[in-house]
Design a protein around this nucleic acid. Structure first.
Lengths: 244, 244
DNA sequence: TAGCTTCTTGTCAGTTCGACAGGAAGTGCT
DNA sequence: AGCACTTCCTGTCGAACTGACAAGAAGCTA
Protein backbone atom coordinates (compact mmCIF):
# COMPACT_ATOMS: atom_id res chain seq x y z
CA UNK A 1 0.00 0.00 0.00
CA UNK A 2 2.77 2.43 0.93
CA UNK A 3 6.38 1.86 1.86
CA UNK A 4 7.60 2.36 5.37
CA UNK A 5 9.36 5.64 4.79
CA UNK A 6 6.23 7.30 3.48
CA UNK A 7 4.05 9.37 5.78
CA UNK A 8 0.53 10.40 4.94
CA UNK A 9 0.02 14.16 4.65
CA UNK A 10 -1.60 16.03 7.51
CA UNK A 11 -4.53 18.25 6.80
CA UNK A 12 -6.69 20.67 8.76
CA UNK A 13 -10.25 19.70 9.48
CA UNK A 14 -13.06 22.21 9.75
CA UNK A 15 -16.80 22.03 10.09
CA UNK A 16 -19.27 24.33 8.36
CA UNK A 17 -22.95 24.66 9.08
CA UNK A 18 -25.83 25.28 6.74
CA UNK A 19 -28.53 26.29 9.19
CA UNK A 20 -31.92 26.63 7.60
CA UNK A 21 -35.11 28.02 9.02
CA UNK A 22 -38.34 29.63 7.93
CA UNK A 23 -38.83 33.35 8.39
CA UNK A 24 -41.59 35.33 6.83
CA UNK A 25 -42.71 32.26 4.88
CA UNK A 26 -39.38 32.05 3.12
CA UNK A 27 -36.39 29.80 3.52
CA UNK A 28 -33.44 31.49 5.26
CA UNK A 29 -29.88 30.50 5.96
CA UNK A 30 -27.69 31.80 8.76
CA UNK A 31 -24.61 33.68 7.59
CA UNK A 32 -21.97 35.49 9.60
CA UNK A 33 -19.62 38.26 8.68
CA UNK A 34 -16.12 36.93 9.04
CA UNK A 35 -14.01 38.64 11.68
CA UNK A 36 -10.65 37.14 10.82
CA UNK A 37 -8.52 37.27 7.82
CA UNK A 38 -9.16 34.94 5.06
CA UNK A 39 -12.14 36.73 3.49
CA UNK A 40 -12.46 39.08 6.46
CA UNK A 41 -15.65 41.08 6.23
CA UNK A 42 -17.46 38.88 3.74
CA UNK A 43 -20.36 36.62 4.56
CA UNK A 44 -19.72 32.99 5.32
CA UNK A 45 -21.27 29.98 6.91
CA UNK A 46 -20.77 29.54 10.63
CA UNK A 47 -18.08 27.01 11.38
CA UNK A 48 -14.55 26.51 12.54
CA UNK A 49 -11.73 24.12 13.07
CA UNK A 50 -11.73 21.03 15.17
CA UNK A 51 -10.75 22.17 18.65
CA UNK A 52 -8.36 19.37 19.42
CA UNK A 53 -7.37 16.02 18.03
CA UNK A 54 -9.85 14.20 20.23
CA UNK A 55 -12.96 16.13 19.41
CA UNK A 56 -15.58 14.21 17.48
CA UNK A 57 -16.62 15.91 14.25
CA UNK A 58 -20.31 16.01 15.00
CA UNK A 59 -19.53 17.30 18.47
CA UNK A 60 -17.55 20.09 16.86
CA UNK A 61 -20.52 20.89 14.67
CA UNK A 62 -22.81 21.07 17.70
CA UNK A 63 -20.28 23.21 19.52
CA UNK A 64 -20.11 25.69 16.66
CA UNK A 65 -23.88 25.59 16.41
CA UNK A 66 -24.02 26.70 19.99
CA UNK A 67 -21.12 29.18 19.95
CA UNK A 68 -21.96 30.89 16.72
CA UNK A 69 -25.69 30.63 16.59
CA UNK A 70 -26.76 30.01 20.17
CA UNK A 71 -28.63 26.90 19.08
CA UNK A 72 -29.01 23.49 20.64
CA UNK A 73 -31.31 20.54 20.10
CA UNK A 74 -31.81 21.09 16.42
CA UNK A 75 -31.92 18.58 13.63
CA UNK A 76 -28.36 18.04 12.43
CA UNK A 77 -27.18 15.76 9.66
CA UNK A 78 -23.97 15.39 7.66
CA UNK A 79 -24.18 17.09 4.29
CA UNK A 80 -20.94 16.58 2.43
CA UNK A 81 -17.18 17.07 2.51
CA UNK A 82 -15.46 19.90 0.72
CA UNK A 83 -11.74 19.50 0.39
CA UNK A 84 -10.64 20.85 -2.94
CA UNK A 85 -6.93 21.76 -2.62
CA UNK A 86 -7.14 25.49 -3.26
CA UNK A 87 -10.30 26.30 -1.36
CA UNK A 88 -8.63 27.90 1.65
CA UNK A 89 -5.47 30.04 1.51
CA UNK A 90 -4.37 28.89 4.96
CA UNK A 91 -3.47 25.44 3.71
CA UNK A 92 -5.11 22.16 3.00
CA UNK A 93 -8.39 22.59 4.81
CA UNK A 94 -11.00 19.90 4.50
CA UNK A 95 -14.40 20.96 5.67
CA UNK A 96 -17.19 18.70 6.77
CA UNK A 97 -20.46 20.47 6.15
CA UNK A 98 -23.55 19.76 8.21
CA UNK A 99 -27.13 20.61 7.49
CA UNK A 100 -29.08 21.94 10.45
CA UNK A 101 -32.79 22.65 10.51
CA UNK A 102 -34.39 24.75 13.19
CA UNK A 103 -37.86 26.14 13.89
CA UNK A 104 -38.35 29.84 13.60
CA UNK A 105 -36.47 31.52 16.40
CA UNK A 106 -37.33 34.40 18.71
CA UNK A 107 -34.91 36.77 17.01
CA UNK A 108 -31.68 37.40 15.03
CA UNK A 109 -29.80 34.75 17.04
CA UNK A 110 -28.50 35.73 20.43
CA UNK A 111 -25.28 35.01 22.25
CA UNK A 112 -23.21 34.71 19.17
CA UNK A 113 -19.53 34.92 19.14
CA UNK A 114 -19.21 36.04 15.56
CA UNK A 115 -19.01 39.65 14.55
CA UNK A 116 -22.45 39.66 13.05
CA UNK A 117 -24.86 36.83 12.41
CA UNK A 118 -27.83 37.34 10.19
CA UNK A 119 -30.55 35.33 8.59
CA UNK A 120 -30.45 35.74 4.86
CA UNK A 121 -33.09 34.50 2.49
CA UNK A 122 -31.75 31.63 0.46
CA UNK A 123 -32.78 33.44 -2.67
CA UNK A 124 -30.54 36.37 -1.74
CA UNK A 125 -27.69 34.19 -0.56
CA UNK A 126 -27.59 32.34 -3.85
CA UNK A 127 -28.20 35.30 -6.11
CA UNK A 128 -25.29 36.13 -8.30
CA UNK A 129 -24.51 39.47 -6.68
CA UNK A 130 -24.15 38.04 -3.17
CA UNK A 131 -20.59 37.22 -2.29
CA UNK A 132 -19.85 34.32 0.01
CA UNK A 133 -16.47 33.32 1.36
CA UNK A 134 -14.61 30.22 0.16
CA UNK A 135 -16.86 27.75 -1.64
CA UNK A 136 -19.71 28.45 0.72
CA UNK A 137 -22.08 29.39 -2.02
CA UNK A 138 -21.95 25.89 -3.35
CA UNK A 139 -22.31 24.43 0.13
CA UNK A 140 -25.46 26.47 0.67
CA UNK A 141 -26.82 25.32 -2.67
CA UNK A 142 -26.10 21.70 -1.80
CA UNK A 143 -27.78 22.09 1.58
CA UNK A 144 -30.90 23.62 0.09
CA UNK A 145 -31.06 20.93 -2.54
CA UNK A 146 -30.73 18.28 0.13
CA UNK A 147 -33.58 19.80 2.09
CA UNK A 148 -35.75 19.96 -1.01
CA UNK A 149 -35.38 16.33 -1.88
CA UNK A 150 -35.53 15.05 1.69
CA UNK A 151 -38.85 16.80 2.13
CA UNK A 152 -40.26 14.43 -0.43
CA UNK A 153 -39.66 11.16 1.29
CA UNK A 154 -38.75 11.89 4.89
CA UNK A 155 -40.37 13.70 7.78
CA UNK A 156 -37.73 16.44 7.66
CA UNK A 157 -40.39 19.12 7.35
CA UNK A 158 -41.33 18.67 10.99
CA UNK A 159 -37.85 19.86 11.96
CA UNK A 160 -38.79 23.31 10.69
CA UNK A 161 -41.75 23.43 13.06
CA UNK A 162 -41.95 23.71 16.81
CA UNK A 163 -42.81 20.75 18.95
CA UNK A 164 -46.43 21.06 18.00
CA UNK A 165 -47.73 22.60 14.83
CA UNK A 166 -50.76 22.90 12.65
CA UNK A 167 -51.09 21.33 9.27
CA UNK A 168 -51.02 24.67 7.54
CA UNK A 169 -47.74 25.49 9.26
CA UNK A 170 -46.39 22.29 7.83
CA UNK A 171 -47.75 23.28 4.45
CA UNK A 172 -45.89 26.57 4.64
CA UNK A 173 -42.68 24.63 5.09
CA UNK A 174 -43.26 22.70 1.91
CA UNK A 175 -44.27 25.80 0.02
CA UNK A 176 -41.26 27.79 1.16
CA UNK A 177 -38.67 25.11 0.58
CA UNK A 178 -40.06 24.00 -2.74
CA UNK A 179 -41.05 27.46 -3.86
CA UNK A 180 -44.46 26.37 -5.07
CA UNK A 181 -48.00 26.61 -3.83
CA UNK A 182 -50.11 23.70 -2.71
CA UNK A 183 -53.81 23.17 -2.29
CA UNK A 184 -54.56 23.10 1.46
CA UNK A 185 -57.32 20.53 1.09
CA UNK A 186 -55.27 18.04 -0.86
CA UNK A 187 -52.31 18.71 1.42
CA UNK A 188 -54.46 17.68 4.36
CA UNK A 189 -55.39 14.42 2.76
CA UNK A 190 -51.86 13.60 1.77
CA UNK A 191 -50.19 14.46 5.04
CA UNK A 192 -52.72 12.57 7.08
CA UNK A 193 -52.47 9.61 4.73
CA UNK A 194 -48.73 9.21 5.22
CA UNK A 195 -48.50 6.76 8.09
CA UNK A 196 -46.37 7.79 11.01
CA UNK A 197 -45.69 11.28 9.66
CA UNK A 198 -47.69 13.32 12.14
CA UNK A 199 -49.86 12.40 15.11
CA UNK A 200 -52.61 14.44 16.72
CA UNK A 201 -51.57 16.20 19.90
CA UNK A 202 -54.62 16.69 22.04
CA UNK A 203 -57.60 18.55 20.60
CA UNK A 204 -55.89 21.83 21.45
CA UNK A 205 -56.15 24.92 19.35
CA UNK A 206 -54.34 28.14 18.53
CA UNK A 207 -54.04 31.18 16.21
CA UNK A 208 -56.09 34.32 16.47
CA UNK A 209 -57.88 34.87 13.24
CA UNK A 210 -59.98 32.10 11.76
CA UNK A 211 -61.20 28.74 12.89
CA UNK A 212 -58.77 27.18 15.38
CA UNK A 213 -56.58 24.47 13.97
CA UNK A 214 -55.83 21.06 15.36
CA UNK A 215 -52.34 20.57 16.68
CA UNK A 216 -50.03 17.77 15.69
CA UNK A 217 -46.55 16.63 16.56
CA UNK A 218 -43.96 14.67 14.64
CA UNK A 219 -44.86 11.02 14.28
CA UNK A 220 -42.67 7.99 14.84
CA UNK A 221 -41.56 7.34 11.27
CA UNK A 222 -38.84 9.16 9.39
CA UNK A 223 -39.46 7.67 5.97
CA UNK A 224 -42.71 8.66 4.38
CA UNK A 225 -45.03 6.26 2.68
CA UNK A 226 -46.56 7.31 0.48
CA UNK A 227 -43.99 10.00 -0.29
CA UNK A 228 -44.92 13.65 -0.81
CA UNK A 229 -44.40 13.85 -4.53
CA UNK A 230 -43.62 17.27 -5.84
CA UNK A 231 -45.58 17.84 -9.01
CA UNK A 232 -44.73 20.96 -10.97
CA UNK A 233 -47.57 22.97 -9.59
CA UNK A 234 -46.34 26.43 -10.14
CA UNK A 235 -47.31 29.32 -7.93
CA UNK A 236 -49.63 32.08 -9.22
CA UNK A 237 -46.75 34.00 -10.70
CA UNK A 238 -45.44 33.62 -14.22
CA UNK A 239 -43.62 30.84 -16.04
CA UNK A 240 -41.12 28.97 -13.94
CA UNK A 241 -39.30 26.37 -16.02
CA UNK A 242 -39.86 22.94 -14.51
CA UNK A 243 -36.19 22.18 -14.91
CA UNK A 244 -34.69 19.01 -13.59
CA UNK B 1 -12.96 32.47 17.06
CA UNK B 2 -9.58 31.36 18.33
CA UNK B 3 -6.66 33.28 19.76
CA UNK B 4 -3.49 33.74 17.78
CA UNK B 5 -1.39 31.26 19.70
CA UNK B 6 -3.83 28.45 19.00
CA UNK B 7 -3.20 26.04 16.18
CA UNK B 8 -5.82 23.73 14.77
CA UNK B 9 -5.01 20.03 15.15
CA UNK B 10 -3.74 18.11 12.16
CA UNK B 11 -5.42 14.90 11.19
CA UNK B 12 -4.87 12.15 8.64
CA UNK B 13 -7.27 11.89 5.79
CA UNK B 14 -8.20 8.61 4.17
CA UNK B 15 -10.70 7.51 1.58
CA UNK B 16 -12.70 4.30 1.69
CA UNK B 17 -14.72 2.79 -1.10
CA UNK B 18 -17.98 0.91 -0.98
CA UNK B 19 -18.01 -0.69 -4.42
CA UNK B 20 -21.27 -2.38 -5.22
CA UNK B 21 -22.16 -4.63 -8.11
CA UNK B 22 -24.54 -7.40 -9.02
CA UNK B 23 -23.31 -10.97 -9.23
CA UNK B 24 -25.52 -13.97 -9.47
CA UNK B 25 -28.57 -11.74 -9.01
CA UNK B 26 -27.39 -10.60 -5.62
CA UNK B 27 -25.81 -7.41 -4.38
CA UNK B 28 -22.09 -7.73 -3.70
CA UNK B 29 -19.48 -5.46 -2.19
CA UNK B 30 -15.76 -5.55 -2.84
CA UNK B 31 -13.64 -6.37 0.20
CA UNK B 32 -9.92 -6.89 0.50
CA UNK B 33 -7.87 -8.74 3.01
CA UNK B 34 -5.62 -6.25 4.73
CA UNK B 35 -1.90 -6.76 4.18
CA UNK B 36 -0.59 -4.30 6.74
CA UNK B 37 -0.87 -4.06 10.41
CA UNK B 38 -3.87 -2.45 11.85
CA UNK B 39 -6.30 -5.35 11.44
CA UNK B 40 -3.88 -7.26 9.25
CA UNK B 41 -5.57 -10.26 7.71
CA UNK B 42 -9.16 -9.17 8.27
CA UNK B 43 -11.49 -7.99 5.56
CA UNK B 44 -11.83 -4.29 4.90
CA UNK B 45 -13.02 -1.83 2.31
CA UNK B 46 -10.53 -0.79 -0.33
CA UNK B 47 -9.07 2.61 0.43
CA UNK B 48 -6.04 4.46 1.61
CA UNK B 49 -4.55 7.73 2.65
CA UNK B 50 -4.34 10.84 0.61
CA UNK B 51 -1.11 10.59 -1.35
CA UNK B 52 0.06 14.11 -0.82
CA UNK B 53 -1.29 17.38 0.46
CA UNK B 54 -2.33 18.50 -3.00
CA UNK B 55 -4.34 15.50 -4.06
CA UNK B 56 -8.05 16.11 -4.41
CA UNK B 57 -10.17 13.78 -2.32
CA UNK B 58 -12.26 12.48 -5.18
CA UNK B 59 -9.11 11.99 -7.23
CA UNK B 60 -7.72 9.90 -4.40
CA UNK B 61 -10.89 7.83 -4.43
CA UNK B 62 -10.55 7.23 -8.17
CA UNK B 63 -6.90 6.37 -7.76
CA UNK B 64 -7.68 3.76 -5.11
CA UNK B 65 -10.53 2.50 -7.25
CA UNK B 66 -8.02 1.87 -9.96
CA UNK B 67 -5.15 0.59 -7.84
CA UNK B 68 -7.11 -1.71 -5.62
CA UNK B 69 -9.93 -2.81 -7.87
CA UNK B 70 -8.71 -2.13 -11.37
CA UNK B 71 -11.77 -0.06 -12.08
CA UNK B 72 -12.27 3.18 -13.96
CA UNK B 73 -15.26 5.02 -15.33
CA UNK B 74 -17.69 3.89 -12.72
CA UNK B 75 -20.38 5.85 -10.96
CA UNK B 76 -18.80 7.46 -7.89
CA UNK B 77 -20.46 9.64 -5.30
CA UNK B 78 -19.58 10.86 -1.82
CA UNK B 79 -21.21 8.80 0.88
CA UNK B 80 -20.26 10.18 4.27
CA UNK B 81 -17.39 11.03 6.58
CA UNK B 82 -16.29 8.79 9.40
CA UNK B 83 -14.02 10.42 11.92
CA UNK B 84 -14.81 9.13 15.36
CA UNK B 85 -11.69 9.62 17.48
CA UNK B 86 -10.91 6.01 18.36
CA UNK B 87 -11.67 4.37 15.04
CA UNK B 88 -8.07 3.86 13.92
CA UNK B 89 -5.18 2.97 16.26
CA UNK B 90 -2.69 4.85 14.10
CA UNK B 91 -4.02 8.23 15.19
CA UNK B 92 -6.78 10.60 14.29
CA UNK B 93 -7.83 9.28 10.93
CA UNK B 94 -10.81 10.82 9.22
CA UNK B 95 -12.11 8.80 6.36
CA UNK B 96 -14.19 10.06 3.48
CA UNK B 97 -16.27 7.19 2.16
CA UNK B 98 -17.41 7.03 -1.43
CA UNK B 99 -20.08 4.89 -2.96
CA UNK B 100 -19.15 3.33 -6.29
CA UNK B 101 -21.48 1.38 -8.53
CA UNK B 102 -20.23 -0.81 -11.33
CA UNK B 103 -21.74 -3.23 -13.82
CA UNK B 104 -20.97 -6.89 -13.46
CA UNK B 105 -17.35 -7.45 -14.27
CA UNK B 106 -15.55 -10.17 -16.23
CA UNK B 107 -14.07 -11.74 -13.15
CA UNK B 108 -12.79 -11.47 -9.54
CA UNK B 109 -11.17 -8.11 -10.25
CA UNK B 110 -7.83 -8.14 -11.96
CA UNK B 111 -4.66 -6.11 -11.53
CA UNK B 112 -5.19 -5.43 -7.89
CA UNK B 113 -2.52 -4.38 -5.56
CA UNK B 114 -4.10 -5.71 -2.43
CA UNK B 115 -3.32 -9.11 -1.03
CA UNK B 116 -6.68 -10.50 -1.94
CA UNK B 117 -9.76 -8.79 -3.30
CA UNK B 118 -13.05 -10.58 -3.33
CA UNK B 119 -16.64 -9.85 -4.02
CA UNK B 120 -18.73 -10.66 -1.00
CA UNK B 121 -22.48 -10.73 -0.95
CA UNK B 122 -23.81 -7.84 1.07
CA UNK B 123 -25.82 -10.27 3.11
CA UNK B 124 -22.65 -12.09 4.15
CA UNK B 125 -20.67 -8.92 4.70
CA UNK B 126 -23.29 -7.57 7.08
CA UNK B 127 -24.07 -10.83 8.83
CA UNK B 128 -23.06 -10.83 12.46
CA UNK B 129 -20.34 -13.45 12.11
CA UNK B 130 -18.42 -11.60 9.41
CA UNK B 131 -15.67 -9.46 10.82
CA UNK B 132 -14.74 -6.23 9.10
CA UNK B 133 -11.86 -3.95 10.01
CA UNK B 134 -12.38 -0.57 11.69
CA UNK B 135 -15.95 0.72 11.40
CA UNK B 136 -16.27 -0.63 7.89
CA UNK B 137 -19.29 -2.69 8.68
CA UNK B 138 -21.24 0.46 9.34
CA UNK B 139 -19.87 2.11 6.22
CA UNK B 140 -21.04 -0.81 4.13
CA UNK B 141 -24.46 -0.63 5.75
CA UNK B 142 -24.67 3.08 5.03
CA UNK B 143 -23.65 2.55 1.43
CA UNK B 144 -26.23 -0.14 0.86
CA UNK B 145 -28.90 1.97 2.48
CA UNK B 146 -27.95 4.89 0.26
CA UNK B 147 -28.22 2.71 -2.83
CA UNK B 148 -31.59 1.41 -1.73
CA UNK B 149 -33.14 4.82 -1.30
CA UNK B 150 -31.49 6.38 -4.33
CA UNK B 151 -32.95 3.65 -6.49
CA UNK B 152 -36.36 5.02 -5.67
CA UNK B 153 -36.02 8.47 -7.08
CA UNK B 154 -32.90 8.56 -9.22
CA UNK B 155 -31.63 6.68 -12.23
CA UNK B 156 -28.88 5.04 -10.16
CA UNK B 157 -30.01 1.58 -11.20
CA UNK B 158 -28.60 2.12 -14.67
CA UNK B 159 -25.13 2.36 -13.14
CA UNK B 160 -25.37 -1.33 -12.28
CA UNK B 161 -25.97 -2.17 -15.92
CA UNK B 162 -23.72 -2.06 -18.93
CA UNK B 163 -24.03 0.65 -21.50
CA UNK B 164 -27.07 -1.05 -22.96
CA UNK B 165 -29.40 -3.32 -21.07
CA UNK B 166 -32.78 -4.94 -21.19
CA UNK B 167 -35.65 -4.02 -18.96
CA UNK B 168 -35.47 -7.31 -17.13
CA UNK B 169 -31.81 -6.71 -16.37
CA UNK B 170 -32.87 -3.43 -14.83
CA UNK B 171 -35.54 -5.24 -12.91
CA UNK B 172 -32.96 -7.62 -11.49
CA UNK B 173 -31.10 -4.62 -10.13
CA UNK B 174 -34.14 -3.43 -8.26
CA UNK B 175 -34.93 -6.89 -6.99
CA UNK B 176 -31.40 -7.54 -5.79
CA UNK B 177 -30.88 -4.21 -4.09
CA UNK B 178 -34.29 -4.06 -2.50
CA UNK B 179 -34.45 -7.76 -1.80
CA UNK B 180 -37.98 -8.10 -3.05
CA UNK B 181 -39.64 -9.45 -6.16
CA UNK B 182 -41.45 -7.35 -8.70
CA UNK B 183 -44.02 -8.11 -11.35
CA UNK B 184 -42.27 -7.83 -14.74
CA UNK B 185 -45.36 -6.48 -16.49
CA UNK B 186 -45.95 -3.69 -14.03
CA UNK B 187 -42.24 -2.97 -13.91
CA UNK B 188 -42.30 -2.42 -17.65
CA UNK B 189 -45.08 0.06 -17.44
CA UNK B 190 -43.50 1.96 -14.58
CA UNK B 191 -40.01 2.16 -16.01
CA UNK B 192 -41.23 3.28 -19.39
CA UNK B 193 -43.52 5.80 -17.78
CA UNK B 194 -40.69 7.57 -15.94
CA UNK B 195 -39.64 10.25 -18.36
CA UNK B 196 -35.97 10.43 -19.19
CA UNK B 197 -35.09 7.28 -17.28
CA UNK B 198 -34.29 4.96 -20.18
CA UNK B 199 -34.32 5.40 -23.94
CA UNK B 200 -34.54 2.74 -26.61
CA UNK B 201 -31.23 1.89 -28.23
CA UNK B 202 -31.91 0.59 -31.71
CA UNK B 203 -34.23 -2.37 -32.19
CA UNK B 204 -31.33 -4.65 -31.34
CA UNK B 205 -31.72 -7.83 -29.43
CA UNK B 206 -29.79 -10.32 -27.31
CA UNK B 207 -29.90 -13.31 -24.92
CA UNK B 208 -30.06 -16.92 -25.92
CA UNK B 209 -33.07 -18.48 -24.40
CA UNK B 210 -36.45 -16.90 -24.91
CA UNK B 211 -37.82 -14.09 -26.98
CA UNK B 212 -35.16 -11.45 -27.65
CA UNK B 213 -35.48 -8.33 -25.58
CA UNK B 214 -35.33 -4.72 -26.66
CA UNK B 215 -32.23 -2.85 -25.62
CA UNK B 216 -32.18 0.44 -23.80
CA UNK B 217 -29.59 2.82 -22.49
CA UNK B 218 -29.62 5.34 -19.66
CA UNK B 219 -31.77 8.37 -20.41
CA UNK B 220 -30.93 12.02 -19.90
CA UNK B 221 -32.57 12.58 -16.51
CA UNK B 222 -31.16 11.63 -13.15
CA UNK B 223 -34.22 12.37 -11.04
CA UNK B 224 -37.16 10.13 -11.69
CA UNK B 225 -40.68 11.33 -12.09
CA UNK B 226 -42.75 9.53 -11.17
CA UNK B 227 -40.47 7.84 -8.64
CA UNK B 228 -40.17 4.07 -8.35
CA UNK B 229 -42.01 3.61 -5.09
CA UNK B 230 -41.07 0.55 -3.16
CA UNK B 231 -44.19 -1.06 -1.81
CA UNK B 232 -43.68 -3.84 0.68
CA UNK B 233 -44.09 -6.62 -1.79
CA UNK B 234 -42.27 -9.40 -0.14
CA UNK B 235 -40.55 -12.17 -2.03
CA UNK B 236 -41.96 -15.73 -1.97
CA UNK B 237 -40.20 -16.53 1.27
CA UNK B 238 -41.66 -16.09 4.74
CA UNK B 239 -42.52 -13.04 6.83
CA UNK B 240 -40.12 -10.16 6.52
CA UNK B 241 -40.92 -7.33 8.95
CA UNK B 242 -41.54 -4.16 6.96
CA UNK B 243 -39.30 -2.20 9.28
CA UNK B 244 -38.49 1.45 8.74
C1' DT C 1 -76.33 38.55 13.61
C1' DA C 2 -73.64 39.55 9.62
C1' DG C 3 -69.19 39.39 7.65
C1' DC C 4 -64.59 37.82 7.49
C1' DT C 5 -61.03 34.47 8.16
C1' DT C 6 -59.10 30.03 8.36
C1' DC C 7 -59.67 25.18 9.12
C1' DT C 8 -61.76 20.71 7.74
C1' DT C 9 -64.68 17.42 5.37
C1' DG C 10 -66.46 16.02 1.04
C1' DT C 11 -67.28 15.01 -3.96
C1' DC C 12 -66.01 13.89 -8.64
C1' DA C 13 -63.64 12.71 -12.72
C1' DG C 14 -59.19 11.40 -14.53
C1' DT C 15 -55.16 8.76 -13.65
C1' DT C 16 -52.26 5.45 -11.70
C1' DC C 17 -51.44 0.82 -9.51
C1' DG C 18 -51.36 -4.00 -8.57
C1' DA C 19 -53.00 -8.55 -10.08
C1' DC C 20 -53.44 -11.36 -13.77
C1' DA C 21 -54.35 -13.24 -18.81
C1' DG C 22 -52.63 -14.08 -23.11
C1' DG C 23 -50.23 -13.26 -27.37
C1' DA C 24 -45.40 -12.60 -29.59
C1' DA C 25 -40.90 -14.28 -30.71
C1' DG C 26 -37.10 -16.73 -30.08
C1' DT C 27 -34.54 -21.87 -29.05
C1' DG C 28 -34.23 -26.81 -28.94
C1' DC C 29 -36.10 -31.51 -29.44
C1' DT C 30 -38.39 -35.13 -32.04
C1' DA D 1 -42.37 -28.96 -39.46
C1' DG D 2 -44.43 -29.21 -35.21
C1' DC D 3 -44.34 -29.00 -30.36
C1' DA D 4 -42.64 -27.79 -25.82
C1' DC D 5 -40.38 -24.30 -23.41
C1' DT D 6 -38.50 -19.94 -22.43
C1' DT D 7 -38.62 -15.04 -22.08
C1' DC D 8 -40.58 -10.65 -23.60
C1' DC D 9 -44.27 -7.51 -24.04
C1' DT D 10 -49.17 -5.70 -24.56
C1' DG D 11 -53.65 -5.51 -22.50
C1' DT D 12 -57.57 -5.49 -19.22
C1' DC D 13 -60.02 -4.62 -14.89
C1' DG D 14 -61.24 -3.05 -10.42
C1' DA D 15 -59.22 -0.58 -6.53
C1' DA D 16 -56.71 3.18 -4.88
C1' DC D 17 -54.91 7.63 -5.47
C1' DT D 18 -54.66 12.64 -7.39
C1' DG D 19 -55.82 17.22 -8.50
C1' DA D 20 -59.63 20.58 -8.84
C1' DC D 21 -63.18 22.50 -6.51
C1' DA D 22 -67.58 23.23 -3.25
C1' DA D 23 -69.43 23.74 1.00
C1' DG D 24 -69.73 23.43 5.93
C1' DA D 25 -67.51 24.35 10.69
C1' DA D 26 -65.67 27.34 14.06
C1' DG D 27 -63.45 31.08 15.64
C1' DC D 28 -63.00 36.60 15.59
C1' DT D 29 -64.76 41.53 14.93
C1' DA D 30 -68.24 45.00 14.26
Amino acid sequence: MFDDSWEPPAILLAVDLVILTLRDSRLHVLLIERGIEPHRGTLALPGGFLRDANEDIEDAARRELNEEAGLADVHLEPLNVYGEPGRDPRGRVVSVAYLAITPRLPEPVAGTDAVRACWTSVEDALSSDAELAFDHRRIVADGVERARTKLEHTALATAFCGETFTISELQQVYEAVWGIQLDPRNFYRKVQGARGFIVADGPLRRTANGRPARLFRAGPDQVLYPPMVRTAHVAPQGPNGSAN
